[in-house]
């Protein structure tokens, strides 16, 4: 695969703090990558370095085989920063026209409006008078204005209502189908699970996990089968099977933990314990996230 973006041993230190610590990865064309991690994990710092806004203390960043600050790079990227800002004194339509004029092959204004859901009313409004969510929409439109090949969003959906959010992800899907490469950070794990085909999990400035959502979830390998059963019934019989790692009760349900859930199902029927409402509990991204980014004392 063609690498569009490569980070090699990138580190960024501020006076008293190493925000990003020896991070390396490579992203190919058409990938949709989610950057996850708790507050202060180094997501925005990493994105800022990719965008050429911050210089790495050490290491190298290459975009389209060029340095981040070069003009040819800027013509091919679009971005929505974590802190949305707009130009005051101009109507939305005027700002869009202005920013489009910076790029060699900008996106059609009509298309831009359709993609981002800006309304006729929004277009006539002065940027400083937009609501928070409307500003986000404008900021989304500005990110797409130059018809970029690589799009980077830092927490794009914060402050969007459900309609805007759905529309945003709908548009992102359409963009991926066109072969665009997309990198986004988010605190909504469901978004990463749904939209990304690759997840970077950041913790304390390092990447602690890199893989598909499935792979990341599999890392916690804590699958279980849960069911409802007569509380009087003893589950002694199940314990005798070595495939079962643990059994516990929670919220009126019994959870049977095992790496082989198929075998657990077999056992449940074999032992005729009268289980009802049986469910297979796959690892959730939340659990993986908590486990992988949790405090060190938990991990020990």
């Amino acid at each position: 695969m063609n690498a569009i973006l490569t980070l090699t041993n990138v580190t960024k230190s501020f006076q008293h703090k190493t925000a990003v610590n020896n991070v390396s990865f490579s992203i190919g064309q058409g990938e949709v990558v989610a950057i996850l991690g708790p507050n202060g994990a180094g997501k925005t710092t990493t994105i800022s370095m990719i965008l050429g806004l911050l210089k790495p203390t050490a290491g190298e960043i290459r975009l389209f085989n060029l340095e981040p600050h070069e003009k040819q790079v800027r013509e091919k990227i679009g971005t929505m920063l974590q802190e949305v800002s707009v130009m005051t004194g101009l109507k939305v339509r005027e700002i869009l026209q202005l920013i489009r004029s910076y790029y060699p092959k900008p996106l059609d204004l009509e298309e831009l409006i359709n993609l981002t859901g800006l309304t006729e009313q929004d277009l006539k409004t002065r940027a400083e008078k937009l609501s928070g969510g409307q500003k986000r929409r404008l900021s989304f439109a500005l990110a797409l204005a130059g018809n970029p090949e690589l799009i980077i969003f830092d927490e794009p959906t914060v402050g969007m209502d459900i309609t805007s959010r759905n529309r945003f992800w709908h548009t992102v899907r359409a963009l991926t189908e066109q072969g665009k490469t997309i990198i986004f950070s988010t605190h909504y794990l469901q978004e990463a699970d749904d939209a990304a085909d690759r997840i970077f999990l950041f913790k304390d400035g390092s990447i602690v996990a890199d893989g598909t959502p499935q792979q990341i979830k599999a890392r916690i390998s804590k699958q279980s089968v849960s069911f409802i059963v007569d509380p009087e019934l003893s589950l002694e019989k199940l314990y005798l099977h070595s495939e079962i790692d643990d059994i516990y009760r929670k919220d009126n349900r019994v959870y049977v933990q095992s790496t082989n859930t198929d075998r657990v199902l077999e056992l449940i029927f074999q032992e005729k314990i009268g289980a009802r409402d049986i469910q297979i509990e796959r690892g959730k991204l939340e659990e993986a996230f908590e486990q992988l980014t949790g405090n060190d004392k938990e991990a020990i």
Partner: peptide, 8 residues
């Protein structure tokens, strides 16, 4: 900051 990311 945003302008710095554009080709202007």
């Amino acid at each position: 900051t945003f302008i710095r990311i554009t080709p202007l």
